[in-house]
């Protein structure tokens, strides 16, 4: 990122990064989203401290009890504390969101960079495969991959990560195509830099902004995807809690124990909403036309 400053005209008091930050700070929605995300991360990290009970502790005498003084969110079908499970479940959701997007990024960005920078038949091949993958619904792809890899949280993250990769390939490629004809890239080439150096030092830093936005939105999608896979029994394995698997069980008791569905669902909604708000804010803040 250090080279970035040299290529862009500098204002007197603010670096571009500071301006972006300032614009972001002014957006109330994005800040609220960030606050909630930070809150969930804190809850996930401190789960053993903030959870009132062991999330796996069953109690035959307290099966499907409505919220009360002892259990603020009620208990589930085998007498576990729903609040504690929601708190520990934040770990699975956040982990899935972050790790799977890291997987998508680490696969999609190099491939997209390659396609966009090298062009020719390599580009054609990559683009056709990407088109084919994008023709298949994201969740269907993830479900098939997760079923193939076997049900576990790790495999669900890999499946989601791979399924979300084509979007990043396509985005990176399009950005690279736009950037590589810029004067500073031409200049770097004229000076005799190697292709690898040009791609990594001059092209990549200038395509990062839209990737950050896309990654943030992809986390939101990945959180929902993890919940969906766990809902289908392909994610987090019992008895470990995950919001998706909690909903899967809760759907059988929606009539007589609605609290089992309300809290995990609300948590997914809040977390996804926050990432979406943050992503929208980042998009506006990083928009060079503003």
């Amino acid at each position: 990122m250090a080279t970035l400053a040299a290529d862009v005209p500098v204002f007197r008091e603010l670096t571009p990064r500071q301006r972006v930050l300032r614009r972001l700070l002014r957006r109330r929605g994005a800040m609220a989203g960030l606050a909630v995300v930070v809150f969930f991360i804190a809850v996930a990290l401190l789960a053993p401290l903030v959870a009132p009970y062991d999330p796996l502790q069953t109690s035959w005498s307290a099966v499907r009890k409505a919220p009360n003084a002892m259990h603020a969110f009620g208990t589930d079908e085998i007498g576990r504390d729903v609040a504690s499970r929601v708190i520990f479940g934040a770990r699975a959701s956040l982990l899935a969101g972050l790790v799977s997007v890291c997987i998508s990024l680490s696969l999609g960005v190099p491939i997209g960079l390659l396609a966009g920078y090298v062009s020719g038949w390599v580009d054609s091949l990559i683009s056709r495969i990407t088109d084919a993958m994008l023709a298949c619904p994201f969740l269907i792809l993830a479900i098939a991959l997760a079923a193939f890899l076997g049900p576990s949280l790790t495999n669900a993250m890999i499946a989601i990560g791979i399924s979300a990769t084509p979007i990043f390939i396509r985005l990176t490629r399009a950005q690279v195509l736009a950037v590589k004809v810029e004067d500073y890239v031409e200049a770097a080439r004229a000076v005799g830099n190697s292709h690898l150096r040009i791609a990594l030092r001059h092209v990549l830093p200038n395509v990062v902004a839209p990737l950050i936005v896309q990654a943030t939105l992809a986390i939101a999608a990945a959180v929902i995807a993890e919940a969906s896979l766990s809902f289908l029994g392909l994610g987090q394995q019992p008895p470990a809690p995950s919001w998706g698997s909690m909903l899967n069980t809760a759907k059988n008791y929606i009539d007589n124990a609605p609290w089992m569905a309300v809290w995990p669902g609300l948590s997914i909604f809040l977390l996804v909403l926050s990432f979406n708000l943050l992503g929208d804010g980042l998009r506006d803040a990083l928009d060079p036309r503003r």
């Binding site: 069953t58 079908e77 085998i78 049900p151 289908l232 029994g233 019992p238 008895p239 899967n248 069980t249 059988n252």
Partner: peptide
């Protein structure tokens, strides 16, 4: 199997 009955049984047996 991932059916809800089987999963409940497994978790109760585990405990």
């Amino acid at each position: 199997p991932t059916t809800s009955d089987a999963q409940k049984i497994a978790q109760v047996v585990q405990a």
